[in-house]
Design a protein around this nucleic acid. Structure first.
Lengths: 332, 332
DNA sequence: CACGATAATCGTAACGTTACGATTGAAAAA
DNA sequence: TTTTTCAATCGTAACGTTACGATTATCGTG
């Protein structure tokens, strides 16, 4: 309600002077600045986003493009601390965060194009990178500040924050081999996802170093829900040569696998060894011996905003590339 | 980039006519409308939010105020499908959804006031209602469209979507009594939260009907994390007269309690009976016999947006009040 | 043939803000 | 005294949009 014009009228000043006073313009007398600020505070003046955005192009809004894939009542739990981290960091930086959800039916490139045309955000956060992701080139071409959660195999430099999924999968596989496992099952999430590709690469590297040939039947993808994970692992357990080790993709994959194990009376740590990704560190409370790789997703959210902020402030500066390592907690 | 002025110049029309043509104004000739739309499509015209918002006051943005309380790497899992439901519904309705996170340090009323002053949303979604929540009066006074997730004990009519926590807790308590339990422990979330108050009321009603006096030591609140839930329940189990039944507040509370049970070698369904709230229906995959009350949180998100939309469209219409029942799935 | 009615289009102003150049007044320099 | 300089403030225009009243041109009617 309160705007510059009202404050100006009350003090018999011009709108221009009030505007400058509120941002401590050096051309305004110190006493005037004080008077203006006092009135502004009294009437509860808050600058109008839309007026300012129209004039300056600065929207003070960031948009995060997130895939919404709730299936079977749940989606990847890590997304919650990620969102929390992003919203808090954005707020601290003076931005508001808008969440743009995409369904599996949406074309990711089209979604980004629509957001670009609307020009209603100062920067974009894109997630769920795929191989040679076309969105990167699109955003670079348009000179729109953005940051990616995840990397893609392009030889262009662009800002990202990523988790070293290759190293984590490598480490997980090695730890399972240390326990004596040779038939190690690997759980992936979405197949075309770059994160899954990296996990597969890390797994492959560890297996190759140990001289164990890769059995494709031990690699499962698309196991996003607990249900499908349970069904997949149950099939593996029922096979002629069942796995002795398992690297899970996340909490839900783990719960599904544990369910399958429980129905056969098998226990992790005794009959089979499990190492899982568990960003929420939920596995600690499960009655099972499981090694855990975790990454602080709220921190990932913070870092994403931080990088994007830097990108907006200095679009031509060096691109930040952040690679986070997982932390391992052994089975108790 | 593309705006009305450019389209107007290309067709030698006035900006006014172009603006009207794009919204099928009856004053514009049909053939002109067609020509304008064709050019608009070709140049990829998307109306500028900020210009329109400035002129009309319509921002096409909704803001959800969510408490961010990630502790111990997790916060209430139900929030994720809630966010997913809201963002998708908002997008379908042509709105973008902005998430405003509040920390436990923030004063909820102040947060709402700041959002009101900014006037950068057409409507607000508030959550985590407390007893005689002051935000309701504030928002009603300011005539800002809003919807609450949860009710509060005020005798003013205001729009809300809520879950019948009283009935669910009543039902849970009764089901535990049906199993023969008389010493029933009750897990609450945040104490001053209205949802917890309703749970307590439902529990009290069931106990009163059965003629069982309430033992305050069996009622725990503030058990938001798995860790604190485990510690709380462990204390109860170690007491002289331990509980034989437990009504959990959510998935995390359940996992904590199960952890405590596991350490004493006790099993749900045998030594103790458990009924839990589990909106994500995660308990199905736990190796324990547990009765479950669930509510489709994505649907709650949809309903919230729907109610808010109606409120914006017709601020003086009747206030929608939606009360959702839980669904019960017995222990297998 | 002049007149009012109607259809189609146009021009102006305004929403709240800021950039930029213009204007005022007073003190310092000539 | 006149000129110069500088600090402080003001006015105008513009960002993209829409509301509202004004302006044309075309037609049917008396």
């Amino acid at each position: 309600m309160a705007n510059l014009k009202q404050i100006a009228a009350e003090l018999s000043l011009s709108v221009t002077t009030v505007s400058r006073a509120l941002k401590d313009g050096p051309e305004v007398h110190a006493s005037t600045v004080a008077r203006v600020k006092e009135v502004a505070k009294r009437v509860g003046y808050v600058p109008n986003h839309y007026g300012r955005a129209l004039k300056t192009g600065q929207t003070l809004t960031l948009t995060a493009v997130l895939p919404m894939e709730t299936r079977d009542y749940l989606s990847d739990l890590a997304k919650l601390p990620l969102i929390e981290g992003m919203t808090l960091a954005a707020r601290q930086a003076g931005y508001s965060l808008s969440i743009y959800s995409t369904t599996p039916d949406d074309d990711p490139v089209e979604s980004v194009q629509r957001l670009l045309q609307a020009r209603s955000a100062d920067g974009l956060i894109i997630t769920r990178m795929v191989s040679s992701d076309p969105r990167v080139k699109l955003l670079l071409d348009q000179h729109v500040p953005f940051v990616a959660f995840g990397r893609t195999d392009l030889d262009i430099a662009y800002p990202y924050v990523d988790i070293d999924n290759e190293q984590i999968a490598y480490d997980a596989t090695q730890r399972l081999m240390d326990k004596g496992c040779r038939r190690i099952a690997l759980q992936l999430l979405v197949q075309k996802d770059q994160a899954s590709a990296m996990r597969l690469a890390g797994y492959g590297r560890a297996m190759a170093e140990a001289g164990i040939p890769i059995d494709q039947s031990l690699i499962g993808d698309g196991t996003f829900t607990m249900e499908s994970s349970a069904a997949w692992f149950e099939r593996l357990l029922a096979s002629a040569d069942p796995p002795t080790g398992l690297a899970c993709a996340n909490e839900l994959g783990l719960l599904g696998a544990l369910h399958a194990l429980g129905r056969r009376g098998l226990a992790p740590g005794r009959d089979i060894h499990i190492v899982t990704r568990d960003n929420t560190r939920l596995a600690r409370f499960l009655p099972a011996k499981i090694g855990v790789h975790s990454v602080d997703m709220a921190d990932v959210g913070h870092k994403l905003i931080e990088v994007l902020e830097g990108r907006i402030a200095n679009p031509l500066g060096p691109v930040a590339r952040v690679l986070l390592q997982g932390r391992f907690d052994p089975a108790e």
